[in-house]
Design a protein around this nucleic acid. Structure first.
Length: 424
DNA sequence: TCTGGGGTCCTAGGACCC
DNA sequence: TCTGGGGTCCTAGGACCC
């Protein structure tokens, strides 16, 4: 009956334990077992089932640190399978787009929506039920007047089962809820700022909301001030238009073993330049600046070296062979023999739409040819696997490739890995 | 002998997010 | 032995110009 319910409200839809949920969909035998999913290279824990959270295993913890506990508690372990998660994410987002006018995809497993109804809670439950029906993925939904409060509402919903996975944080109950949220749990407040705030007795989201504008502004800049305003119910962070082109594109990876030679670094960097080019073309963009970086293992006690070289791409381009050529120039500038490298990557910036680039008449014909070539290459690689067609400089054997010891099948995107319905 | 100040643009690095 | 990868935004400070 409350008449203060907003007619327009932000909703945050957050997939529950997303990677774990994706894996359980296709391997029902994992449903009642504790389960973790590891990051690339099987390095860290990036998704945990509820049972694993209850064991006290934290998010982002290095796998090797909890290996014993994992074994003792009979936790199932999987390497991450981004092909599967990416495809499931698309399906979830597509469903959301059918149920809300504006959908701002925030990450692989989260989206902000604008709800335009006086019955937001009911609509939240409709969304939740529809997503699980269409995709099998369980979600939690937080609703409120700002993005930051919607995030807080979703956190509250996760911790309180009585909400049924949907929580509408209205102005009347706001303060009592904010009192229960630690400063560090507020969206936009990280470790550094939280530490500073705790020292000043700002312990809850409620305290933060009541801070003086000048003091938060001085410490945390305009970003911090925005957080405080958002907690007060004043919306400062708007919904991002769907599919905004990326402003920076990175491809990087740790090696499965240490790499010392320039030749192997070049192979891996050529692979990253190619991957970055694919992403760039998928966005319909060209880049004007390319950085290549190499680094030793910061966690080891052996001699350290890390460096980045940046080169201009003139004229702006998205052609892999050009990106590879410049990457090779860049890595020559920074490579030093005698170090054990653990990671390398390529970042593209100064990104703009491909159809707005300035080129002279002579280049025009060449560009046209290139465009056709890469359209063909990308489509073949999309259909037959990413490494069907590639430059020779990317290497054939790739002994430096990452470790993937426990990956599940690509059930939804690869013909040879479809789930089997019949068991012999 | 006296040696300004304000604007713009760019970049590196920090902080944060999932 | 084994510690991810890919983003965003903001800010300070340097270069440059008039």
């Amino acid at each position: 009956m409350s008449s203060t319910k907003p007619d327009r409200a932000f909703a945050l839809v957050d997939c529950d334990n997303f990677y774990v949920s994706c894996e359980r969909l296709f391997q029902p035998k994992l449903k009642n077992r504790p389960l973790i999913v590891l990051s690339n290279n099987d390095g860290c824990i990036v998704s945990r089932s509820a049972e694993v959270k209850a064991l006290g295993i934290g998010m982002g913890v290095p796998f090797h640190q909890v290996k014993d506990l994992v074994k003792r508690a009979k936790v199932a372990v999987l390497s991450s399978n981004y092909t599967l998660y990416g495809d499931m994410s698309k399906r979830v987002m597509k469903t959301l787009q059918q149920l809300a006018a504006v959908v701002d995809i925030y990450s692989i497993d989260e989206a902000f929506l604008m709800l335009e109804t006086s019955r937001v809670k009911e609509h939240g439950h409709l969304i939740r039920n529809t997503v699980i029906k269409h995709t099998g993925i369980p979600v939690t939904i937080g609703i409120s007047g700002t993005k930051t409060l919607a995030k807080a509402a979703a956190e509250y919903a996760k911790k309180n089962e009585t909400t049924g996975g949907v929580f509408n944080l209205t102005p009347e109950i706001r303060d009592s809820v904010l009192l229960k949220i630690l400063t560090q749990e507020v969206w936009g407040i990280g470790v550094k700022t939280a530490e500073w705030l705790y020292q000043r007795g700002i312990n809850s989201a409620f305290d933060l909301k009541n801070m003086r504008d000048e003091s938060i502004r001085k410490r945390a800049g305009i970003t911090g001030l925005r957080v405080v305003y958002e907690l007060r119910g004043i919306s400062c962070i708007s919904l991002k238009p769907l599919m905004a082109p990326k402003k920076g594109i990175t491809s990087s990876r740790s090696f499965g073993r240490y790499v010392t030679s320039l030749a192997e670094l070049k192979e891996s960097l050529a692979t990253h330049a190619t991957r970055a080019g694919e992403k760039l073309r998928a966005d319909g963009s060209v880049a004007g600046l390319l950085s290549a970086f190499i680094t030793t293992n910061v966690y080891s006690k052996t001699p350290q070296y890390a460096n980045t070289a940046t080169v201009s791409i003139i004229p702006r381009s998205n052609a892999s062979h050009e990106l590879i050529r410049l990457t090779m120039i860049a890595v020559e500038k920074i490579y030093k023999p005698g170090f054990r490298y653990i990671k390398a990557g390529v970042t593209l910036t100064n990104i703009s739409p491909a159809d707005q680039r300035q080129i002279d008449m002579f280049s025009l014909k060449e560009m046209d040819k290139e465009e056709k070539l890469y359209r063909a290459v990308d489509s073949i690689n999309r259909d037959f696997g990413l490494k069907t067609l590639q430059h020779l400089s990317c290497g054939i054997s790739r002994e430096w490739g990452m470790r993937i010891d426990f990956r599940s099948s690509r059930y939804t995107t690869n013909w040879s890995e479809l789930p089997v319905a019949r068991v012999n």
